[in-house]
Design a protein around this nucleic acid. Sequence first.
DNA 1: AAGGCAATGTTATATAGTAACTTCAATTTG
DNA 2: CAAATTGAAGTTACTATATAACATTGCCTT
Lengths: 168, 168
Amino acid sequence: MLASVSDPVKPDSLTHDHTGCLNKAIHTAEQLCAERGVRLTPIRRKVLELVWESHQAVKAYDLLDRIKPLERTAKPATVYRALDFLLEQGLIHRVESLNAFIGCSCSDRQHEQMLLICIECHEVEERPGVAVMAAVARELEQAGFTIHRKTIEVHGICAHCSPSRASS
Amino acid sequence: MLASVSDPVKPDSLTHDHTGCLNKAIHTAEQLCAERGVRLTPIRRKVLELVWESHQAVKAYDLLDRIKPLERTAKPATVYRALDFLLEQGLIHRVESLNAFIGCSCSDRQHEQMLLICIECHEVEERPGVAVMAAVARELEQAGFTIHRKTIEVHGICAHCSPSRASS
DNA sequence: AAGGCAATGTTATATAGTAACTTCAATTTG
DNA sequence: CAAATTGAAGTTACTATATAACATTGCCTT
């Protein structure tokens, strides 16, 4: 399985020029790394590009398979180190419920988002979910719980894949 | 590592009689399984008891190590099958961000809860988070997204472990 | 040129989870 | 009651995910 989490219909890739997404993500990454004085090395950059090849979550070992032709010596550690770096810099998200990764389209703004994972096309959409985050904050303040990290992931059927799209 | 996700301080276990939690969970499980005509076999029951030994999330292979002395023939599949059953019946939760499991204390009511995971004592608290769930529902209705399954997990410091407990 | 350091290479292993087939045991049904 | 059915558990083998520990490289500093 070289593709992504599973074999997909790709509605969104028919409706937008994905090269733009990729270019924008790489450009943002370069800028942020420069500002922060950290190095977007060729391997890290390549992993980021691979993550951004689609809007689907990709698995670490799929990344490994795809990077091997280019970086002959690549091993699991190669990929996981690059992923760790990209996570630290907020350039990708880890999708906990899939053990997989997606590009972050909000690296330059707040990084914590909710993730909508379509079980049909397998694309993952980020949403800031301001009201949701506020509700979580209120709830946890009541509980006396200090938030370090939030994971909010919803599996379901996206608008594109919904049979009756009369709703929205 | 036989214990749980990591070696813990256990504040909560000092402040309550945990036997009660365990007994209640088993009793509820027996009732629900009887009602539903499904079998809480000795293995399933034992796994549920082990999950309920603490309020910390437990890993599948830790369960395996702990069940082996009792069920000599236990293998990974033994444990995963029991876990699958318990998940289906809503008797446990899977903690996605830990690849681990905790007992569900709301099996008889609605099962989707938010999980508060303390990074100090490693205990996991369930909360219905009614306002949060409502906010998620509103958000996703806007997005035209049909919810199948929600994962809401927050890592942080619980009230017990908080240095300044003046808040709540 | 030498030393320090971050990144990567390398080897090995730990941890997590599933597939496929077999055996067993309880229940139904002829 | 015996045969058939079925769900659970045993068994073997494997695939997938992730990390530890140490060696090497190459850049940057002094």
